[in-house]
Design a protein around this nucleic acid. Structure first.
Lengths: 241, 241
DNA sequence: CGCGCCTTTGAATTTAATCAATTAGTGTGG
DNA sequence: CCACACTAATTGATTAAATTCAAAGGCGCG
């Protein structure tokens, strides 16, 4: 349980969590009061796929990696969760088991509510339910979008898209371009796009030779976002300076 | 609005619609009373992608085709809706615009509720909201599953999966096997699995030669479902009678 | 009957996966 | 701090899978 003295700071965080959008201060206080606070070390397994969904987390610090391991042992990387984002919400509210696996990438701080608490809160404040539905719809659309990509685009386009999406999730403007500094292996990118690490490596290096990106140790600097967009859209990249 | 005399029959249908599961007879009566009834001809455009979500439909007769047209003009076929199933529910409850396009394949009968009505009904009976969330979660899991398939499996497996899924959606047991008689072109199957009609044609004929399926005019008869499952799971099909 | 649409099939081509070998980078413990 | 082990990344060669292009056949329908 969150200590009395921490409730104010927790509320400050929750105010920006979409699941709790449009709640009054009073309602938020109740929600905050029911939260458990937790700190986990790097590599902690937070959510194990196919186990009973018991807890909804909101990340307040750190980074979480959400992936899925298929029956035949393949892993596909779904997304990264940053501070202010929710994980486990959908399963907690509407499902029985978690559909994905979530690991902490680094030491992370979380707020947690269990299923029963959430159900009570939703009945108490229907707005939370509507928010949850809105989030689910957004997720459905995102997944649909991803299916379309996987079904109709070729690998180079999918990788370009994935990188562009990362710039939005974790990009920082820089004099040289946009810097993405998530610690992301070739294997990770391959799992995000449904390809192999070899193909990812080849394409990234090709783009580096074309000065579209620069590969740094664990970062990618996008120097010509526009060219990447062209690749993502399957247009030819114009030859120029 | 549904006529007084029809409410009983409408309620009989709604009783088996997952969105309205666990409602009392009294509650169902209210829901039924708010429904509009509509009959549409074959090929009617019911839902147009990217337009404001205004209506939730429950199909009471006929068949609906749900697809998505991408920015670059590709179409991907998402699923077929049969009697008792809902369409437009997620967007109506949680979204602003429909994420897909829906056509009637043949003359179809529908019940319809508009967004405002649904929101009132949910506030009145929170169970509908929970049901909606459960359905959304199921949908999210299905889409995730599909992403995994598209990302990691090869075309023959995806087509096998698609056919197996169709047997569940619209299969009928037969002395010879399971009969799927949705009017489904090679192009449709290609759109469902993210491949080309040529590849679909080749594989279907190959399977026909192997006596796994029989292609009839607009039907597919699955004679050895087990072999299809093996193909879907990427196992070798055993040689036998 | 002839036209359009869907389907089949072959051949060539492209794309990406796979396999194999090497190199670079990271971190750990002596 | 360096050597060693380990993991991640690169790159080339080969192979396999699926697309693309082209052509021909079949079917329904006006």
């Amino acid at each position: 349980m969150v200590a009395e003295t921490d409730i104010a700071s927790v509320m400050g965080i929750l105010r920006h969590v979409p699941l709790f959008a449009s709640l009054t201060t009073e309602q938020l206080r109740t929600v905050a009061g029911r939260a458990e606070s937790r700190t986990v070390k790097a590599k902690t397994l937070l959510i194990r796929q196919r186990t009973a969904a018991t807890t909804l987390y909101v990340l307040t610090g750190g980074q979480i990696r959400v992936s899925e391991i298929t029956a035949d042992g393949n892993e596909i990387l779904h997304r990264f969760i940053g501070p202010g984002q929710m994980i486990g919400g959908m399963a907690t509210v509407g499902g029985l088991t978690y559909p994905v696996t979530a690991h902490a990438l680094c030491e992370s701080r979380l707020l947690a509510w269990n299923t029963g608490t959430m159900q009570k809160l939703i009945t108490l404040y229907p707005m939370i339910g509507f928010n949850a539905m809105r989030l689910m719809v957004a997720r459905i659309e995102e997944l649909q979008q991803r299916c379309v990509e996987l079904a109709t685009q070729q690998v180079r386009q999918r990788i370009a898209h994935a990188i562009l999406r990362l710039t939005q999730q974790a990009g920082r403007r820089d004099t040289e371009g946009i810097l993405v500094d998530i610690r992301l292996s070739r294997q990770d990118l391959a799992e995000m796009t449904g390809t192999t690490l070899y193909t990812v490596s080849r394409l990234l290096n090709q783009w580096q030779r074309q000065k579209i990106i620069t590969l740094e140790k664990h970062k990618i600097l996008i120097r010509k976002p526009h060219d990447l967009v062209c690749i993502a859209e399957a247009e030819e990249v114009r030859e120029d300076p």
